[in-house]
Simulated assay, not measured.
Amino acid sequence: MLLSISLILIVGMFMGWLCQKCRLPSLLGMLATGIVLGPYVLNLLDGSILGISPELRKIALIIILTRAGLGLDTSGLKKLGRPAVLMCFVPASFELMGVLLLAPKLMGLTVLEAAILGAVLAAVSPAVVVPRMVQLMDEGYGVKQGIPQLILAGASVDDVYVIVLFSTFVGMMQGESASLLSFVNIPVSILLGMAVGLAVGFLLAFFFAKVHIRDTAKVLIILSISFLLVAAEDALTTAITFSALIAIMFIGIGLQKKRAVVAKRLSVKYGKLWVAAEVFLFVLVGATVNIGYLGKVGAKALLLIVGALVFRMLGVFVCLLGTSLSKKERLFAMMAYTPKATVQAAIGGIPLALGFACGDTVLTVAVLAIVLTAPLGAFAMDLSYKRLLKKE
């Protein structure tokens, strides 16, 4: 395992640096590192580290979501109001609708199989989007208009909505009836996650005011609580749950509201943690990509992904109708909502593992979506934000 960790960090950082020198997103190099070192090419990564890959990727997401919460300016988000809520589910719904229309004709799937494929594709990747929105907030681009806050919050909630839909469609494929309670759980889990996160953030702010400890110790406490929240969500078997990842982001927001100075210092600490976490996240996402499946992909699958993204961007455009955002700012939001990686890597193989007839097709399209949209979406954001957004 030590050799694998060494290879992930050294090769991943070098490839990321190389891509930056070529004016490409660093994550492109990290994804390529994971693909090459992973089990489907050179197979140099230890099986034990691949076995805990989902947990390691989740830790990286916890780090960047906490940092996002610690630096999130909610004043810009409040100005937008309605669009902020719509961005949580409308773009994903539009993309799902696009797949339902296109997949039966292009891929020969049934409507229910197309719904499963649509649910896999419809999630935006927080792993790609959140770090870039944090960078925008740090540099002051679009903050006054609330653009990075809007995209960051929407991307975090979007996944909860899509995963519930995916679970429902898989259940229907297995002969279960669709449960109304599972759909009710979507807004409830989001609201409960916000409430839990804010409560924990306020309590931590009070604790840090009374007990003086090093900032490093504070980071360890927040990380431990975040891990407990994720474990609690996984352990819950009730119909109504809460979203741990949203709770984690709102811990940072709650702490920022009550202890802004501490939140600012902790944000710097989390930024240092992210240097290593980012490498692990994208290299391990790359390691899940089986490029052997790409040989089975024809022009129809590529057309399906492009068509689905058009529907998704149309959904973002609808969400932003009636806002004061300029055409350039809306264009940026539409591009920023296209990258896919983490969710597709996590659930893309489930239909195949369950023995569904559409499983091979779903996994193949999911892999192609990662390879295509993660680097292109990141590249589009990195290349355009200084031209399309206003700097404070």
Rank of each mutant, 00 (worst) to 15 (best):
R330A: 14
A84L: 07
A195I: 14
I222H: 04
L86A: 13
A155Q: 05
A299C: 06
A239S: 10
Y161Q: 09
A60P: 10
Y40Q: 06
T74H: 00
I147Y: 04
F379S: 10
I116C: 00
I163D: 09
G81S: 13
M107A: 09
A378F: 02
V196S: 00
S48P: 06
D46T: 06
A345E: 02
G12Q: 02
T361F: 01
W17H: 13
P91Y: 07
C22Q: 10
P187C: 01
R57H: 06
G47H: 13
Y293N: 14
A301V: 01
F242G: 09
K328T: 13
G315W: 06
L61A: 04
Q145H: 03
A366D: 01
V285T: 02
V160R: 07
V362L: 07
A336W: 05
V283K: 03
Y141K: 14
F356G: 08
G254K: 10
V219S: 12
T238A: 14
L294R: 08
G47D: 13
K258S: 15
V184E: 01
S267K: 10
S75M: 08
L37S: 04
V162I: 12
Y270P: 07
A127T: 07
L50T: 05
L102P: 01
K78E: 15
V268T: 04
L273P: 00
A369G: 00
V362Q: 03
V85N: 02
F207E: 01
S167H: 07
A357E: 12
V367N: 04
K327Q: 15
A244K: 04
R23C: 15
K78Q: 14
Q256E: 11
K79I: 07
L45V: 08
G108W: 12
E176I: 10
L331H: 01
T66V: 13
V219I: 09
G29S: 11
L223R: 02
K386E: 15
A103P: 04
G175N: 11
I59W: 09
V297F: 15
L80Y: 00
G76Y: 00
I370D: 00
L309K: 05
G201Q: 05
K257V: 09
I63W: 00
I8A: 09
N290E: 05
S224P: 02
L152F: 11
G29E: 10
I190C: 10
I370N: 00
V279L: 07
C319Q: 03
K390F: 08
V134C: 11
A378S: 11
V261T: 10
G286C: 03
S53E: 09
I190R: 06
C19S: 03
L7I: 09
I63M: 01
L368K: 00
K78N: 14
V143Q: 12
L223C: 08
G201F: 05
G108N: 12
L331Q: 02
L24G: 08
I35W: 04
G38F: 01
